[in-house]
Design a protein around this nucleic acid. Structure first.
Lengths: 221, 221
DNA sequence: TATAAAATATGAGATATCTCACATTATTGT
DNA sequence: ACAATAATGTGAGATATCTCATATTTTATA
């Protein structure tokens, strides 16, 4: 992690308005932290020192189970807060957050600002909304996971994450996100290719039959 | 649903202090609603009129999927708020909530109080904490669901929900809660009996070997 | 640029879990 | 008290998904 200073710091702070989330001017107290791809933003079971507002980048929120398996709970994309739960309850330990790409965060020191934030109507209201959205999203994902086979969920995920008809996520990540084994994910991709829905191309897949993907994903909702 | 009046209303309001969640005296504006076992507190996809504070009873929070399967997201036990998400975002539709036992709720009309609640620091702070706890709990449950076989999760659930060594939940509910088919749940109960861990007794099961249950559930966390 | 580490890929065999059909109790409303 | 409804229980066969072993390719790093 690198703390950005001067011009660089200021440019990020100017570029991304964060004051809207607070009833006071927090800008002077902010530092700007930069995480490299693969770096851990919060180590699992740690006590974060900062409330982060991610302004650029993408990260994985995950938990490691006793048996060694990893559940990728969510992909966090900017803009987004991280560490709110730990701000609210200092006893609580963090889940793991790892940067997937280079990530820039505005950093608010928790110790120094906890009291002020927990009495800030604007901040608390925003936080309620964000927490509520997040729960909605996570609940939807997990209830679907246990009710629909991978075929349907993968179809939906491909549509969601592909860019101009091209899918190129990392299998190792996506199997943890979708809650299945690597092997099974690969089987399902193979089946999609077999069915003429996808065509493997370099490090990714071209969508050949979008309608079929839509049909499969519409079985979910 | 029955609206309780006079003595009955007042006795519930006195018995369960709700003012602690608000920075103003809300008591005069409260009505008290009583739901019978099996009654729907929120219909799925409806727009709740009230923010409820459940003070007595137990309810199921669930969602019905397109394919007809039901996910029982959580058992809600008093004391607990219901309808907070819909208070925060009026566009959002409710999940289903059904009373499992007779349930008493203090009712706050959303339309009338939304504005006031969304500027109430005490309320918002409490809500943040509750939302954050709830998400924690739900996430833990679902990530475990997808990483451990039923054997382990059921062992943990039996320990959690049994009373003095006796388990007597309804299979039809629990299979939806644990995210497995009724059939599979029964297989696993049969296996536990076979292994001498449980003994079927009337409408329930007696725990015969608590250590084994502990061992099985400890594999989770 | 060589080497280690991560990601991709695939086969074979196992198992956790599901569907459906059907019979038997409980429970509940009238 | 009786019919309707919900809950329980079980078999047989299917399938969605997992484990493990192993090989190859790509990417990262000293």
């Amino acid at each position: 992690m690198k703390v950005l200073t001067n011009i660089l710091r200021n440019s990020y702070i100017e570029q991304y308005p964060i004051n809207q989330f607070f009833s006071f001017d927090i800008i002077t107290y902010l530092t700007v932290h930069q995480f490299e791809k693969g770096e851990f933003i919060f180590k699992e079971r740690s006590h974060p020192e900062y409330l982060y507002y991610m302004v650029e980048g993408k990260a994985k929120l995950y938990v490691t189970h006793k048996n060694g398996k990893v559940s990728l709970i969510d992909f966090i994309t900017s803009p987004c807060f991280m560490g709110e739960m730990e701000l609210l309850d200092s006893v609580r330990v963090s889940k793991g957050i790892q940067a997937v790409t280079k990530t820039i965060c505005l950093a608010i020191p928790i110790l120094q600002f906890r009291k002020r934030l927990l009495t800030d109507v604007i901040f608390l209201r925003e936080l309620c909304m964000l927490l509520s959205d997040k729960e909605m999203k996570v609940t939807a994902k997990y209830t679907q996971n246990q009710v629909y086979p991978l075929e349907n969920r993968l179809a939906a995920f491909i549509l969601l994450s592909s860019d101009q008809g091209f899918y190129k996520e990392k299998h190792t990540e996506i199997c943890e996100f979708l809650g299945v084994s690597y092997r099974h994910l690969l089987y399902t991709f193979a089946a999609f290719c077999e069915a003429g829905i996808l065509v493997k191309h370099n490090r990714g897949y071209l969508i050949q039959n979008k309608d079929k993907l839509l049909t499969l994903s519409e079985e979910i909702l």
